[in-house]
Write a protein that binds this DNA or RNA. Structure first.
Length: 873
RNA sequence: GGAGGCUUAGCUCAGCUGGUUAGAGCGCACGCCUCACACGCGUGAGGUCGACAGUUCGAGUCUGUCAGUCUCCACCA
């Protein structure tokens, strides 16, 4: 017997329990051929990042799945790690450098700067890992990977070389998205489009050797410095005579060929479009088709080059100056306000500049084909299913992926440029000569790879690829990938095509997509808004279990959720409820072994049967990734069935002098409690483990115990419903008493008239206690007189309570009449339903039977009501 | 322009393949310190499931139209 504190104190428990798991190697996964494999690789958080609510949700889902499968006997691997997060990390270190030392990375030089980043990584890299542990994450930390560790670096290099050798990676000057703040190229996926107010500037372009001119509308007048043509629609009669002629670029004087291209939309703007192939993706395409000159007019800082007097101006300064000049010289026709979508950098929010630049690309079409096929074939399933379409749509329209970044922090591209022959050598080992001309005059490509290039290999690079490892053989493809919908394009799709290409197999069977955690007003949590809620603070205050339960209940897969601190409180209360139920069981415990008694009471059968039902439902929901539904079922079972009913039902036995009865109650209480802890463990690992450790048990840890399964021998549907008759009677009496404001302290005699005497006699004790009766008498016959009695009627019993002072004869009559009318109304609709030939013949048998049963119950209720009424006279 | 989500109790949301009188948490009302728990117990009020039409014996659930709202993709210079 143990005395535990009245309230559950997570702080006193959580780190202790986590240490216990660690010390017993509970998280360690072994490729055990006698078991079935289950694997999840963790989406690696940024190595220098801090845990936010999104991580907390992500990790909780993965932990629940992993713990569930582990308890089901799978060899469950949850493989953690961190991401070097190229831009994000580099920006942080640069910022630190600037603030503390007033230096830029260029002041330090590449090598010294990288030393600083590694130092930074060493300093902060462990932080997020420790934060994961607070949540109870059961990852195999011994396998933890980092996207820039040796294993991953080798995988990146191998993948790059393979793709290059196959011609799927190439270097070329293409139009890309440039972030002037981060000073690097970005992929299409890294650009976020945002509506911004702007203007349409209408500018006159004179026609050479003519008095005519074209009016052109543009949102970006500064790019005119790079104009090398004007385009009109070939079907546009207005301009047909100008096609083939030449326009003169105002301010600059450059001659611009006028070309006809379908790209120009009829009826939009003025119908004539200036072409700036170096600074607009569409113009680039048109330029390719018509051989227009490429004139780059901005540098890496988005300052003007090749622009005469405007050189050195920032793009916005240049815009202002150019518009002024145009106006002054009479070229500006008008200005109209015009909102348009501007691409911004997803890291820093700066407006990106489209520009041509020599970059490295992955050729996507051939890779996409396989990535589409494997999803279409159902090898990879999205949960919820609707995300399949989003993925497909993206994959079908994917452009080549710009993978080079002008950063220093990342995987440096393994390519060497020959200064003699100008060709490129790509190599798995560092090259010392040009593979084409064998010149020693080579220099390494300075660019690094997009962070997502290494993330794309994560499901297999973490398991040792390109080596043929036991882990890969056993756990790849992984079972589930858990991640947010915001990252499908960045990551999920790239893992799929990378897996198909390098492993010849899809990387995971299921992609389990979750939504965003928003604040209580539905806004995205963000640093700038300052509305973020710190998961660690919540865990500290309410316990990690409460936080986890909060995050996974009351919402459905793929949908955003709002975070309410109040809900944490409610979940904390639930923890406390479990704690106290356990405390109660322990206080009454004299047995030392968890086993069911030889013979079971009716209430035992009831709870065991209910437990069996809930076990089945929980597993069904878990297997469909309906974790929230599963959790809610466990919650209800614990609070309603076990605490509110079963514990109360056991008290008479526990308090009786009958030792055998006492022990049998203990046994069932303990058995069901233990099963509850198992069911709940994946969701609330700490409190369940803590309690389990204090109960009689076998084995090292609850988390290594086996998950409950449905047991046919413990299914008692008849006893279940028979017992529920008694429960219904109790509820009915309580309701009636509450209605009349009778305090519990006022007990009353309760006469029960029923033809189910056995069930009610059996339940006498419970009825007495739970329905506040002084004594209960069960009989088949009604008392001679019911004068001064309150009557309570269910479909299985008529009950009478002598409470003369509270009863008004007419009131009783009226109430029963009301109930009768209500029941008859229901019966009527029930009869109508069953009289419907179509229903009876077409509806499934079990549905029809259920309706018949309902009808029978109503009839019984009506009989009882009528009887009671008769008795009232 | 295209795709998708959401609209259910005062608030936030569940409700899976159509089948009782539509549920939960919080909030609210009434009564209770009933020997595990006031972070609790008991009882209750509160919803024509966005609108309209259709399919069906039967629709919160399926189909269509519309409205409001949010998101993603594409992007017209």
């Amino acid at each position: 017997m143990k005395e535990l504190p009245k309230t559950y104190d997570p702080k006193a428990v959580e780190s202790k329990i986590y240490d216990l798991w660690m010390s017993r190697d509970c998280f360690k996964a072994k490729a055990d051929r006698s078991k079935k494999p289950f694997s999840i690789v963790m989406p690696p958080p940024n190595v220098t990042g801090q845990l936010h609510m999104g991580h907390a949700l992500d990790s909780t889902l993965q932990d629940i799945l992993t713990r569930y499968k582990r308890m089901q006997g799978y060899a469950a691997l949850w493989l953690p790690g961190t991401d070097h997060a190229g831009i994000a990390t580099q920006i942080k270190v640069e910022e630190d450098l600037r603030v503390n030392e007033g230096l830029t990375r260029y002041d330090l030089g590449r090598e010294k700067f990288l030393d600083r980043v590694w130092a930074w990584k060493d300093k902060y890299g462990g932080r997020i890992v420790e934060q994961q542990k607070v949540l109870g994450s059961s990852c195999d930390w011994s396998r933890s990977r980092f996207t820039m560790d040796e294993t991953c670096a080798r995988a990146v290099r191998e993948a790059f070389c393979r793709l290059y050798d196959k011609g799927l990676i190439y270097k070329g000057s293409r139009i890309i998205n440039w972030c002037p703040h981060c000073r690097t190229a970005l992929s299409d996926a890294e650009v976020e489009y945002k509506d911004q107010p702007g203007n349409f500037w209408y500018i006159k372009y004179p026609i050479k050797d003519s008095d005519e001119f074209l009016t052109i509308a543009t949102t970006r007048p500064e790019t005119m410095l790079g104009d090398s043509g004007v385009a009109v629609n070939p079907a546009d009669e207005k301009y047909a005579h100008l096609v083939g002629k030449t326009a003169i670029l105002p301010l600059v004087g450059r001659e611009l060929p006028i070309v006809a291209d379908e790209y120009v939309e009829l009826g939009f703007g003025t119908g004539a479009v200036k072409m700036t192939p170096c600074h607009d993706p569409n113009d680039y395409e048109v330029g390719q088709r018509h051989n227009l000159e490429q004139i780059l007019v901005m540098d890496e800082d988005a300052k003007i080059i090749n622009g005469g007097k405007y050189n050195g101006m920032d793009r916005y300064e240049a815009r202002k100056a150019i518009v002024e000049d145009l106006e002054e010289r009479g070229y500006l026709v008008k200005v109209e306000p015009h909102a348009h979508n501007v691409g911004t950098c997803y890291r820093c929010g700066t407006t990106v500049e489209p520009m041509t630049s020599p970059q490295w690309f992955v050729k996507m079409k051939p890779l996409a084909a396989e990535a589409i096929r494997t999803v279409r074939d159902g090898d990879v399933k999205f949960v919820p299913e609707r995300f399949t379409k989003i993925y497909m749509n993206w994959m079908e329209n994917v452009h080549d992926w710009c993978i080079s970044r002008q950063l220093w922090w990342g995987h440096q591209i393994p390519a060497w440029h020959c200064t003699d022959c100008g060709r490129i050598t790509v190599s798995r080992n560092d090259a010392d000569e040009c593979e084409h001309c064998h010149s020693k005059n080579i220099r390494r490509e300075e660019d690094v790879l997009d962070t997502w290039f290494s993330s794309a290999l994560w499901p297999f690079s973490t398991m040792g690829w390109p080596e043929k490892t036991e882990d890969l053989d056993y756990w790849y493809p992984t079972s589930v990938m858990v991640t947010g919908y915001d990252i499908i394009f960045f990551w999920v799709s790239r893992m799929i095509f990378s897996g198909m290409e390098h492993m010849k197999k899809h990387p995971f069977d299921t992609v389990f997509i979750h939504g965003l955690v928003r604040d209580s007003q539905g806004r995205k949590m963000s640093k700038s808004l300052g509305n973020g809620i710190d998961p660690l603070e919540m865990a500290e205050k309410y316990g990690a279990d409460a936080l986890r339960f909060n995050l996974i209940t009351g919402n459905s897969p793929g949908n955003d959720m709002r975070f309410y601190v109040e809900k944490c409180e409610a979940m904390r209360n639930f923890c406390n409820k479990i704690w106290n139920a356990s405390r109660f069981v322990m206080m009454n415990l004299t047995i030392e072994k968890n086993e069911l008694p030889e013979s079971l009471e009716l209430e035992d059968k009831w709870i065991l049967s209910k437990l069996n039902d809930v076990t089945k439902e929980v597993c069904e929901n878990m297997d469909r990734f309906e974790l929230g539904v599963a959790a809610a079922k466990i919650y209800d079972f614990i609070w309603d069935s076990y605490c509110d009913w079963f514990i109360e039902l056991c008290k008479p036995r526990l308090n009786s002098d009958n030792a055998a009865a006492n022990v049998s109650a203990q046994k069932v209480l303990l058995y069901v409690l233990t099963e509850i802890l198992k069911l709940l463990h994946p969701f609330m690992p700490f409190i369940t483990e803590e309690i389990w450790q204090s109960l009689p048990h076998e084995g090292d840890a609850l988390m290594m115990d086996s998950y409950p399964v449905f047991k046919t021998e413990l299914s008692f549907p008849e006893d279940e419903s028979s017992f529920e008759m008694v429960m219904e009677a109790i509820k009915a009496v309580r309701a009636r008493r509450a209605e009349m404001n009778v305090p519990p302290s006022r007990k009353s005699h309760l006469i029960i008239v029923t033809d189910k005497r056995e069930a009610f006699e059996n339940g006498e004790g419970f009825i007495c206690k739970l329905a506040y009766a002084a004594e209960v008498s069960v009989s088949a016959d009604a008392p001679g007189s019911t004068e001064g009695m309150v009557s309570v009627v269910t479909d299985n019993a008529r009950m009478f309570m002598p409470m003369a002072d509270l009863v008004d004869f007419e009131m009783e009559r009226a109430r029963i009449n009301k109930e009768l009318a209500n029941a008859e109304k229901q019966l009527q609709s029930q009869n109508a339903k069953l009289a419907n030939e179509n229903f009876v013949s077409r509806a499934p048998e079990n549905v029809v039977n259920a309706e018949r049963e309902k009808k029978a119950k109503l009839e019984a209720l009506i009989d009882n009501l009528t009887e009671s009424l008769k008795q009232l006279g």
